[in-house]
Design a protein around this nucleic acid. Sequence first.
DNA 1: AATTCACAGGGTTATAAGCG
DNA 2: CGCTTATAACCCTGTGAATT
Length: 589
Amino acid sequence: MWHGLEEFLPICLASPRQHGGGQNFQDAIAVWVEEAEEESKLLKRATGYLHDDLTWLALQPPAQVKEQPKFVLHEPAPPPGEKLRRLLESGAEAAAREEKLMAIWVKKLHEELVAADAPVLLKLQGSLDPDRAVLLLVGSTRTSTLKRYLTLFRQWRLWLGEVKLRLPPGRPIDLVDHLMARRDEPCGRTVPEALLKAIAWMEKVAEFPSEERATFGRLAWAAKDKLAEQLAEGAPLTKRAPRYPSYLLAQMEAVVLDNGQTVGWRIWTWAKLLKIWGSLRWSDLQAIIPAELAMVEGRLVTILRKTKTSGPTRRVKELPVVISERAFLVDYRWLETGFALLKQFAGYKRDYLLPRLGANGVLEDKLATYADAMVATAGILANCLKLPSQVLGFWTEHSERSVLPTGLSLLNVQPADKDLLGRWKPEGSDIYARSFAGRVARLQAQFAQVARAPDRYVELDEREIGHELQLWLVERARMTSDAAAVIIEPLVLQWKNAPLHQPYGLLDVPPLENNPAPVPPSVASDSDGGSEGDPATVAAKKARVHERVANYVVVELPGAKFRLRKAGRYGCWMGRRRLFRNSVDFLDS
DNA sequence: AATTCACAGGGTTATAAGCG
DNA sequence: CGCTTATAACCCTGTGAATT
């Protein structure tokens, strides 16, 4: 068996040379991959044969770990978890959770490095606390990423050991074979890429000399591209999460305002509306720190510091979130009412927004996870909004995030403006200054105005939602079309025709703020910390000003003035302070 | 000569689906 | 439910051409 494989591989290796003589590299790879596909029966059988062993191995701690104990043996007892304890004491449950997970995965990383006999281990030998040292190797990689890198790398390492009888790093040619073995399983189209990245990351961390790495050179990368292309053929299109129809938004407001309803559900429904009006992800919502959430002049404002698009390693460090006084369909007071409930019934100190919602609507003083949110969503939809049980799985935790953007794009709102909401598309232009809140309020008002109108169903193209639901029921819930139609029909009628109550609150759409009057030159040069030169050049510069787009903003804080410059034409300005007293867009040369 | 722009490609992370 | 796996969505940087 092994011999057969070893002989097979050099044949593989030879193909590109035969065909590729004077051609370009890409073609050679393509030919090679295709040929290998036909001829890879043997390899296929080998992996098939080994498959059970591999999965079995995956469940076991790697055997090699014990064979190389030189440095595991000297280890002192694991650290007492001092940091963890402090975090928990200060109410940072979410941070503590992250910390714990990180510790687990750092340990696994360490094991993996040992199993791969990584050169970097030599450097760690003197360390009293090797896990701490390994943590430094991780750098700013997040736990979820680290986790995935490790699982993928580990599959590669085990395969390499079994099929090629080699230790990492392995050769590029081995990696190509591994990729093809995965392709034959088959695997999803994003897997080859993920695998390459994971292996490249690990090789870097392990500090294998770069010429010895399996990801060295273009070979494996080119093969990856080719395979990904093959796998993408005929792959199903990706779907967007379904929207909530606007009628349900109105119902949610009623739930929040309903004194007879259980408090836990009122608070979670409030949070749902928050997600909708702020276009927030679940993780965005949960990253809100209650102590930093405030009502300012009728608007709920906060700053997100750790989200998918913000955080220490991101260009955008902090994202402002604004839910304005115009974000409502029927009664604007849902916002303050829910907020008050949250403070009253979940006022304990913590670093996440929502506590877990127990079975009968009781709030527990514990971090709610994604799974908890799914359960709560089902509860709200069934118990509070009275939706039939069969449709519960249709909406996901991402559904809230598509309500406003979809609606606004149907209303022909400029993408640049629309993108302010929850940063659906962060490349868009955005202005992190005073005008942010105003612009967002305007968008929310625009949506609300249409969603309130009698022809909302048509204007927001909500028939599409019913249509999607129909497909979903047939496909996922295995219903006949007729059975699905029976469930959907009354719902759609309601979404379409049920009248909303008389709205209570501000109904107008505030006018678009024009660029404020130009700042006097003195202010501008003031903040720049120097004069701009003699009057002639200033005038010359000014002449050119008008053809260009504003690319900085002047911000006045109580003690200082700053000029924040954009990164590029569509770059963003970022202030670290929470609220700007005063700031002005400025046309610059 | 310096900026800006568009784009590609490498790298990272959150969410959804699947499974025991 | 709790875990793993798959995948979309996102970020960052370099590059070379275009513009100022």
